[in-house]
Amino acid sequence: MTAVKLPAVAPAGLELKQERFRVWRAFKRHRLALVSAILLIIFCAIAIFADRIAPFDPNATNAALAGGKPQPPSAEHWLGTDAYGRDYLSRTLVAIRISLVVGLTAVVFQVVIGVGTGLLAGYFGGRTDNILMRITDTFLAVPGFMLLLMVAGILGGTLPALILAIGALTWMTVARLVRAEVLSLKQREFVTAAQCMGSSHWRIMGVYMLPNLVSIIVVAATLSVPAAILTESALSFLGLGVPPPNASLGNMLSDAQQWIRSAWWIWVVPGVTISLIVLAFNFVGDGLRDALDPRTRS
């Protein structure tokens, strides 16, 4: 805690290369973040090559083998099978792909809308702020899960519909957080200085404010990926998640309820996988946050 803090300045003046190197060095120091980043790369690789590395067709049932009960791990089925006799390893691999696709695309969607709205509202204030925040409020004030159910009902249970629904109904938190931060940044010396020097609005927002928003966006986004993945699982719980027979970590977990007492692999495998993915996102987000934020750099 005795480290000297650098004054809060926008990193605009720093040389880009040096900055990147500094970020990487800082990030590297965060051991958990580094390990998590590697883990995420592995998960992404799994997601990309899922259908090639899966030993079995993930949707092929084998009733004779299962006899209505999940089968424990064996030499042939490394993670056992579910009650349908479907290879659980293959299903998990494919589920990682689907869950990552749902989580990442939904969050990209939400961050783009959320940051745009929050930045414009906070920076321009006045009427712009009023209109944008009323729109945000309208979306915020409709109970999200109910709206999600209604939209899911309209669009039907398909994957793109699911992503669209989750993304479009979760951007408001980011917008509010960004706006709050921008309100505060607007009062800071370097922004006032930039304004006095006649910088354009877009330049102030893009060059002076955005870098200072990165930490809050990263924290919000990393927390949103698991939120999106978990929202899918909640919809699965209602039978409106990723439609069968396709596997998602959410619907695997939802199906696992029944076997919580008698087949550990059925709930441990998707549970641990979801937790690992989420943990990894959080640690990476954390590491990035510490590394990117000029004020917290020691």
Partner: peptide, 11 residues
Amino acid sequence: MQAIAPLVYDN
């Protein structure tokens, strides 16, 4: 119905 669906699908 959600439980029956995968078997109908695969068969």
